[in-house]
Design a protein around this nucleic acid. Structure first.
Lengths: 158, 158
DNA sequence: ACAGACGTGTTATGAAATAACATAACGCGT
DNA sequence: ACGCGTTATGTTATTTCATAACACGTCTGT
């Protein structure tokens, strides 16, 4: 965090864009018989509004309207749901969460994380070589977590 | 954990093999002006003896000779040192630690993790596609964490 | 209406990691 | 050997992250 630069590649959504994103989530839930209940919707909203990865306790603190925080299970359950449906991803190396920025639904999430400003950009690397190596070792790999640490365009001095 | 199988691909080291591994670590430390002090050596020993990934508090509990646990900072500092020198790796998605099983010193660690028996096998996938994608996005990636979840040969039913 | 599944609210606790500060050991120049 | 800066350890306490357990509600199909 804090390197003098402030170009975060994912400014939070506001107004119409936010509403649109939440609406799209509603639609996808309706399609699959899943329910975007108020706490789930609220947590998704907070993630979408944010400029970068949010910690679970950031969400807990920001959850309530009148400054009332949520209880931890409320937020963790919502995050579990959002992850299950692909609306959000957990970044293991940060213990933090981001809304999904990708279009497709079944993708493998991977992240580029800036050690300077804390930005986390989702990307889709080619994982075939890794999966091939896994199979060569006899493993049946079901999911892959890939997190690359380094410096974002704004922070690397360019 | 626990699927009926018990073929862990990394049985812990014992006796001569353990001594040899610790000796090799001593030598590498001496070469680089680093010190394998007693707590560092003890934590490395515990990791090498183990059959699989160990949690920090497993190490804390197992640390002392007469059943005396260590204090958390003792173990976390040792782990930090061991990671810095490449003697151990942290597995983010498990909050756990393993000794390094690779020969070279500067490699990027990556893991195949069995969701059934908990085994974690280190491997070296080709990360070039991911690094290329990172560069294409303008990122200067310094390190990559890759953890593939699935089933090991013993657990996948083969 | 009823049962079952799913979701939420709440209290409490467990697990993982670090802050802060004091003390000790080492490496080095003199 | 002495003093000094650096590195490592010991210790207390706290912070951060996450889940267990159980009561209550709500939706859905029969």
């Amino acid at each position: 965090m804090s390197c003098g630069h402030d170009d975060h590649s994912h400014p939070g959504l506001t107004g119409a864009a936010l509403k649109r994103a939440l609406g799209a989530a509603e639609v996808r839930c309706a399609d699959t018989q899943e329910r975007l209940t108020p706490p789930r919707r609220r947590v998704l909203e907070l993630l979408l509004e944010a400029d970068g990865p949010l910690k679970a306790y950031d969400l807990i603190a920001a959850f309530g309207e009148a400054g009332e925080p949520a209880k931890p299970p409320t937020v963790y359950r919502a995050l579990e749901f959002l992850e299950r449906l692909g609306f959000a991803h957990r970044i293991e190396s940060l213990n933090a969460y981001v809304p999904c920025r990708m279009e497709g639904e079944g993708h493998q999430a991977a992240f580029l994380i800036c050690d300077c400003c804390g930005a986390a950009q989702e990307f889709e690397p080619d994982l075939k070589p890794a999966l091939t190596a896994a199979r060569a070792a006899g493993y049946d790999a079901r999911s892959v977590t890939l997190e690359a640490r380094g410096f974002c365009p704004a922070c690397k001095g360019g």
